[in-house]
Design a protein around this nucleic acid. Structure first.
Ligand SMILES: [Mn+2]
Ligand SMILES: [Mn+2]
Ligand SMILES: [Zn+2]
Ligand SMILES: [Zn+2]
Lengths: 141, 141
DNA sequence: GGATAATTTGCAACTAAGTTGCACTAGAGT
DNA sequence: ACTCTAGTGCAACTTAGTTGCAAATTATCC
């Protein structure tokens, strides 16, 4: 966990970005929270750690961290986007509509096959996809 | 096309809703435009037909039409949600990132299988999912 | 057709997410 | 320590969507 933290800071540095308290805190936060977070939630979490950041800054940092590939954007069809550490294995989510718990799920081979089919059938070149499942977790049924 | 129109008006009426010019126009619009539209686009399209509607009204009608099941909400991860006629066969979309063209695509058996697997493995009851593909259409590659 | 009651509509004011320009601050290399 | 550039905060703005309420419209009953 702390190793990951260091590794990501290195990655930031190598991309030519400066290491600032806010960036450090954001990365640390992402390393410790597996659940995809909204900018608003991030802002609150930073405050809890005693760092009064500005929302403009958070939005700007999120954009940069996405570009570098440290985090990724996820869409749960609510008002605002969410962000989580980008993992090596591309995955999707099971979102409980009741308790809001989020589970990771991995079914990538299948999606790859789909995209190849799409290429053959529709001559459409898929560059990315979004897939999320909504329902009830084992506790909430 | 015109038959469909009538059928949907009937469905509205049976659900206890009144038939108003705006509702008529909205349904007609959905019948004639296959592409998923934003509330803003809908508003503009109604205006083109000479119907000056209010945005509040459009938002309220969209909510009702979704509840009745006449239209469905789609999320292309942009700023605003989109709406299209709900078809009998649940489907997904290929969205061209260049020309914004939208193609329908049907791969439901596979998703059903996935959801059964998810049930067995994670004990998560999937109630709905969102899946959209983004990339380049045959013309734009 | 006209009165009535309940829906629907429009308006204005509001919330919430996100963006922009600009002046000020603070990292990193010398 | 100095300098230059990148990062930050603030205020003002945009855009999507929501809410309360008064006025207009629809369906129903006579
Ligand atoms: Mn995840
Ligand atoms: Mn469609
Ligand atoms: Zn749950
Ligand atoms: Zn295209």
């Amino acid at each position: 966990m702390d190793r990951l933290n260091q590794k990501l800071i290195e990655k930031l540095k190598k991309s030519g970005e400066r290491i600032t308290p806010i960036r450090r805190a954001l990365i640390e936060n992402f390393c410790n929270h597996p659940k995809p977070q909204t900018p608003q939630e991030l802002l609150t979490n930073l405050e809890k750690k005693g760092l009064m950041a500005n929302k403009t800054t958070v939005y700007r940092q999120l954009e940069i961290l996405v570009q570098i590939g440290i985090i990724q954007e996820i869409n749960f069809s609510d008002r605002s986007k969410r962000y989580e550490l980008s993992s090596k294995d591309h995955h999707h989510h099971l979102v409980c509509q009741n308790c809001k718990k989020v589970e990771d799920i991995n079914l990538d081979n299948d999606l790859d096959r789909q995209e190849k089919k799409i290429w053959k059938k529709n001559h459409f070149k898929v560059l990315q996809h979004s897939l999320e499942f909504f329902g009830l977790c084992n506790r909430c049924q």
